[in-house]
Design a protein around this nucleic acid. Structure first.
Lengths: 154, 154
DNA sequence: CGATGATTTCAGTGTCGACCGAAAGGGATC
DNA sequence: GATCCCTTTCGGTCGACACTGAAATCATCG
């Protein structure tokens, strides 16, 4: 006997959240993200999320605030509705990933500063030079690659 | 009156460690990395690191174990010497960075699984599709880019 | 201007992990 | 094998952070 689609989806959401938990996003934040990516209808209130994800209203509030802040989720308020509606902002994933790539490339400024401190001492700067070269290359190539990213499909 | 080179280097080491602390590497581990990248001579014992970095022998031991494990530091033992010598393995930085890029690209398997769960429901999979496309592209391009990485300079 | 139904704030709890330092463990030399 | 010195292990402390649930706050509607 096979499990239902919704059951498998909630297992998927849990995997999704677990992945981003490793990257430092709180578990509940990851669950919200995963859930908002696949729920129907696309918009949910904080109270609904609290119920669906079995998380306290406080946690939902904190994490929604964070997610709205980084842009991954949009908040919409409507006249005549006291409850705000939240939905995934799938466009914001590009910025989200770009920040990650930038974080890697940014080490170059660090190695660069180190090289400057060791200038005039080629013996001693050999180790750093290897690392600096690699990051120097990355800080050229990653932004260039990013420029070539495809437009999202309609 | 200007500060000495060694003073500025230890400030640099601290910045270096702070950067990697944000990526989840313990502060003392980051200090060891930074220190081993610029110290003269290149090899140090655990006891020396403990003294130089003002960290307990236990912390040094734990972090060295971790760093040796991920390959960024090499341990060398010599007959007639009770103390092992540690040094930076600058070659291992390529693997270290590659793991980071892979971590980003690996989200694609997640979004892919999600898309499969939603197959036959184009309405509902629209949001995930946007994200999946982006990660699909990354999981093609990042490994390809990585192949073009330059050899380290002599 | 209450009353209602929602969200945010906040204090408190529990968990996790980094760090320390003392004790145990392991080699090397005598 | 005893000693010396270095490393690893281990119990304990501390601080950070996710999470909860209740109280405060806010907005809408009668």
């Amino acid at each position: 006997m096979s499990v239902g689609r919704e059951t498998r989806l909630s297992a998927w959401i849990e995997r999704f959240a677990a992945h981003f938990a490793e990257e430092g996003i709180p578990l509940i934040g990851g669950r919200i993200l995963g859930y908002l990516l696949v729920c129907q209808p696309v918009e949910r209130t904080a109270a609904e999320l609290s119920q669906e994800l079995e998380a306290s209203s406080g946690s939902i509030s904190t994490n929604l605030k964070y997610l709205v802040n980084v842009g991954l989720v949009s908040k919409r308020t409507r006249r005549g509705r006291q409850a705000a509606e939240y939905r995934i902002n799938e466009k914001a994933w590009t910025d989200f990933i770009q920040r990650k790539l930038n974080a890697i490339a940014s080490v170059q400024t660090l190695t660069d500063d180190g090289m400057r401190l060791l200038s005039g001492d080629p013996e001693r700067s050999m180790r750093l030079k290897t690392v600096d070269h690699l990051y120097g290359w990355l800080s050229e190539e990653l932004p260039a690659l990013w420029e070539r990213r495809p437009a999202s499909p309609k």
